[in-house]
Design a protein around this nucleic acid. Structure first.
Lengths: 294, 294
DNA sequence: TATTAGCTATATAAAAAAAGTATGGAGGTC
DNA sequence: GACCTCCATACTTTTTTTATATAGCTAATA
């Protein structure tokens, strides 16, 4: 049994005669007779009653007709769905996001989801090191990180924006109360809560560099592993912190606030990072195209 | 897209390599490569990532694999169900039954149903003429009648049993109270309720013949179109009747009872009647085989 | 009654498709 | 570096499928 036989069979069933089917199929009549006979032989079943004015389906033939129509329907949708999967309209997109990239990630994902609503989204929030591990194992397709990660060798990245570092403080630890900006010299000896310097976050090193240029090294009272914890420590009054402006803006109810630091230019760059492989699934390709086009 | 292509594709997906599939399929490797390429060309989709140690399904390939497995499964069940329909395990069996054949019909149908439980049964009770009309139109497959129908020309029939005619009466009309049997002479001038003589029922004529041989013609006070009505008229005291013994036995609560008539041998033969066509459906063939084997 | 038209089945030749053979390149492994 | 496995390509052979021609059958028609 093969598709051609079923195709001929269906055409004959619809036309009510073999010669009629031969006209609709643009195929001579004997081949159709022959393929029908082969099909009947294989099934061991008479599918048509032959008369001199056409053919009529037997009960078994009707059964086969019903089912073969269903099968051809399935066949068409099968080909379509395969093409759709290839085009990235269906599938899974698995992303990792660090705490401070939630805003930019969700807005980009929202845009993606409007174009590809059928794609199943998997999003994981975590520390950059953990996310990079998952990316390496192929469990995630792309990551929203901050630039300058040490481990991005072999990975591709795309900068999604710029986020200036600002001083974070609560009223009790403000080193320049009443001023709109803080001179960097005012930070000498001020207790600070910073992201740990051996972290994967690139701007940690930039920050230390800027302080060194100003002639001091920061008085770090607490090394934080992630920005939410740094926010909490600053809010608890352990000291001031340095964070991307947008991270603080994402906590509107918090008593913590930021001020720019004069003559200080360290910046954080949100980036999308992915494996440099030519064998991406359609979903991932489309997502990366979108990310690279905006 | 082709049956063979999907077959090769599935084998490659399962084996994880083209050469592996060539071993399981007992086909050389190049044809498989070629059919795969044709399939990919037609779909416009890359189904496998080729490496030097085998091939790996792409996302689209996985999609096709899932669906093609489902399709092969459907194809198998399709062939099976067609064979089952042909064998008479599935389908419809439409039967007509006259009032007096209900017993024999249900018992035969019960036996049939135990062997072919999936067959949908349609049973219609009615007058023999109506049933024969439906049989002629192909709306019924076979009928349970009584023998000697005038219209059974071109039909085949099988006798299912013998049912002696007996005199039916109620206590008020018993022509020989206290006797176990009635001499036929005792029926002269006795009011009778009989099936109408121009009916299709064969034994109506036999009955009149027996009376004529006894030297009288029956005093028919009521001509009945069917046996239930005759039963009712007898029960209502209009007169005695002649009915097959089993018909009366089928009304156990009735005050009506039968007695044999001496020197009277008219009999009724329950028969199964069907169209003498070689193009019966499987169900009908099996049913007729069963009826003819018992 | 003979004829014609329309259908299916069969035989044979032609065309198309698929399989097999031989070979080369790519990427590991010993 | 030799060797092995795997996939792709070029080419030949085999198989399958199609087309052509024809015959048989039945029903309608002149």
């Amino acid at each position: 049994m093969n598709f051609k036989q079923l195709e001929y069979f269906s055409a004959v069933a619809e036309a009510g005669s073999i010669s009629g089917a031969s006209r609709t199929l643009h195929v001579a009549q004997p081949p159709i007779s022959r393929q029908l006979a082969l099909l009947e032989d294989e099934l061991g079943v008479t599918l048509f009653l032959r008369t001199n004015k056409g053919v009529a389906l037997t009960e078994a033939g009707r059964c086969l007709w019903q089912q073969s129509r269903q099968m051809f329907q399935n066949l068409r949708t099968m080909a379509d769905s395969v093409r759709e999967v290839d085009a990235g309209l269906w599938g899974q997109l698995k992303l990792g996001v660090i705490y401070s990239d939630v805003q930019i990630a969700t807005s980009l994902l929202k845009e993606y989801h409007e174009t590809y609503p059928q794609v199943e989204l998997y999003v994981r929030m975590g520390a950059p090191g953990d996310l990079l591990d998952d990316l390496g194992r192929g469990e995630l397709h792309a990551l929203f990180l901050r630039s300058q990660s040490e481990r991005s060798y072999g990975l591709r990245e795309r900068v999604l924006g710029v986020d200036p570092l600002e001083l974070v403080m609560c009223p009790g630890t403000d080193p320049a109360p009443g001023c709109d900006a803080v001179p960097i010299q005012a930070l000498r000896d001020v207790p600070m809560c910073l992201l740990r310097s051996d972290d994967l976050w690139g701007y940690g090193r930039d920050l230390l560099e800027e302080c060194r240029r100003a002639g001091f090294s920061p008085n770090v009272v607490c090394h934080c592993y992630d920005t939410p914890m740094e926010m909490q420590m600053v809010q608890a009054g352990f000291g001031v912190g340095f964070l991307p402006k947008s991270v603080v803006a994402a906590h509107p109810g918090s008593p913590v606030y930021t001020k720019p630091v004069l003559e200080f230019s360290a910046k954080s760059y949100p980036v999308l990072v992915w494996e440099n492989s030519p064998y991406q699934t359609g979903c991932v390709k489309r997502f990366l195209e979108l990310a690279n086009s905006t």
